Amino acid sequence: MEVDATALAGLQSEVSQLADLFKRRLFEDRSKNALIESVQDQVRAVNDLLRYREFEGLFKEALLAIDRLQSESSTPELVDSVVDELLEVFRRRDLVAVDDSGIFDPRVHEAIGTVPASADLRPNTIAAVHRTGYVLGDRLLRPAQVTVVVSVDD
């Protein structure tokens, strides 16, 4: 079987065009990947800057409270005042204490002890708080550690 020279030339032309197309697409893909990497680097840099700026105000306010502790004679009143000041700084940034005044809720409370129920203490209530818990926005930062009242089986 003899190959027609015209058909062969046509196939060679087609292969040449496909090779050229392949090379152009490969170059475009490399360019796109480089652009994507560049955008990702810029996004990371912006996120780092935003994170820094987000914490900058918090740190400045917390350092003022620390300065008060370091520059004044330590008294219980001063310590209470600085704690209140820091909690207010945190509250303005959406950090709030877990409600630990009522019913035990295992989603936000960690039971570290129990006491038996009595006339004054209803079952499944909080008898004592050992460490305050905190919620940041809608996420639990740390649970409150509490003692829970439990029923006593006779």
Results as ranks from 00 to 15, higher is better:
Glu28Ser: 09
Ile36Glu: 08
Lys23Asn: 12
Ala119His: 08
Arg107Phe: 06
Phe104Tyr: 09
Gln42Lys: 15
Arg44Tyr: 13
Glu61Ala: 00
Arg24Tyr: 12
Glu56Pro: 02
Val129Cys: 01
Gly137Thr: 11
Asn124Val: 05
Val83Trp: 02
Arg53Leu: 14
Thr125Ser: 03
Gly137Asn: 10
Phe55His: 13
Ala127Gln: 07
Glu28Met: 13
His109Thr: 06
Val98Ile: 06
Arg92Ser: 03
Ile112Ala: 00
Lys32Gln: 14
Asp138Met: 12
Leu49Asn: 12
Gly137Asp: 09
Leu141Pro: 02
Ile103Thr: 15
Pro143Gln: 10
Arg91Leu: 10
Asp138Ser: 10
Pro143Glu: 08
Phe22Cys: 11
Asp138Lys: 15
Asp67Pro: 04
Val39Lys: 10
Ser71Trp: 08
Gly57Trp: 15
Glu72Pro: 00
Arg91Asn: 08
Ser81Asp: 01
Phe55Arg: 13
Val46Pro: 04
Arg107Cys: 07
Phe59Gln: 08
Val108Leu: 06
Gly57His: 14
Gly137Tyr: 10
Pro123Tyr: 02
Lys32Ala: 12
Asp41Leu: 14
Tyr134Asn: 06
Leu140Met: 11
Ala127Gly: 02
Val108Cys: 05
Ala45Pro: 07
Lys60Arg: 15
Val115Lys: 07
Pro123His: 03
Val79Asp: 03
Arg91Lys: 13
Thr132Ile: 11
